[in-house]
Amino acid sequence: MKEHSEIPLRERNIVLIGFMGVGKTTIGQLVAKKLYRDFIDVDQEIENRCNMPIPMIFEQMGEDYFRKVERELIVDLCTNTRLKIISLGGGAYLQEEVRNACLSHCIVFFLDLSWEYWKDRLPLIVNSRPLLKNKTLEEVEQLFFKRREAYSLHNSRVLTNELDPETAAEQIVESIKLTWDLYQPHDK
C-alpha cells in the first residue's frame, strides 16, 4: 500500500462526498468525462456486487452488512486504484476507516448544499433512500447537520447552492488542474 506522499498528485483518485441527493453521481460523471477518467458510484457498485438495490440490501441484510460492504469496497478503491472519480454514498464518509483511506490516498471534494436548498430535493429522492423513509422533516434535518461534521474533513469544498451540475463539475476540474500545476515540481 502506497502512502499519500508516494502517489503522484495527478494519479490520485478524486472522491466526492456530501449528503445524499446533493448531486455526487451527476457531478462525478461530468468530472470523469472532463478528466478522461473512469467514474465509480460506490452505491451502484454495491448494488451490482450484491445483485439487489440498496433499499433491499437494507431490508434483507441490514444496515450493518451494507456499511461493511461499503467500507471494504471504498478502502480497496482508495488504496489499490488510481485515476478514478469516486462518488460515495451519503453515509459512507461517517466511517472513520473510510475517511482515513480517502484522505490518505485521494483528493476529497465536499459537495456542500445548504439545508434550504437541499430540502427542496427531498420529494425527489425520499423513496430511493432507506434512511429517509418514515422520517419527519425535523429528523432528516438533524441527520443532515449531524453528517456535516464528518464532511468537514476534506481537501476542498464546492458550494453547489446556485450551481448547475456542469458548472459545479467545471469548478472541480479547474481546482484540480490548478492544484496539479502548483504541485507539479514537487511531484515524484
Rank of each mutant, 00 (worst) to 15 (best):
R10T: 14
E96T: 15
L131N: 04
Y65W: 10
E97D: 15
I57S: 01
V42E: 00
G91C: 10
Q184R: 13
Q142V: 12
A169P: 04
N100V: 13
V108F: 10
N155L: 03
F19W: 06
A101D: 00
T179C: 07
F110I: 03
P8N: 06
F66D: 03
A168D: 01
P55M: 08
N51K: 13
I176Y: 15
N48F: 10
V69L: 15
G23E: 07
N51F: 12
L94V: 03
F19P: 00
R12S: 04
K133P: 01
V75M: 02
D41L: 05
I74W: 12
L182C: 14
L143I: 13
F109V: 03
I46K: 07
L77E: 11
V31D: 00
I85H: 01
K68W: 05
S156Q: 07
C106W: 07
E141Q: 13
A150Q: 00
V42P: 00
H186D: 15
Y151F: 15
E138G: 04
R71D: 15
E63S: 09
I125G: 08
M61L: 15
L73Q: 08
N161W: 12
G90N: 03
E72M: 01
V126W: 04
T167P: 10
Y93D: 08
E63L: 04
S5G: 06
L103E: 06
V108P: 02
E166I: 06
D64L: 11
L153C: 07
T167R: 12
L35T: 06
I74S: 04
L182P: 13
S175E: 12
K135A: 10
E6C: 03
F144Q: 02
I27G: 02
L131Q: 05
D43S: 08
V75L: 02
L137E: 06
T160I: 11
V173L: 12
K188C: 09
Q142C: 08
N48S: 14
N127M: 07
M20W: 04
F110S: 04
R129Q: 13
A92W: 05
Q142L: 13
L163N: 04
D43K: 01
W115A: 09
L137H: 00
I54V: 15
N13I: 03
E6D: 10
L178G: 02
V108Q: 02
V15T: 04
G90H: 07
P55Q: 10
R148Q: 15
A150G: 05
S156H: 09
P55N: 08
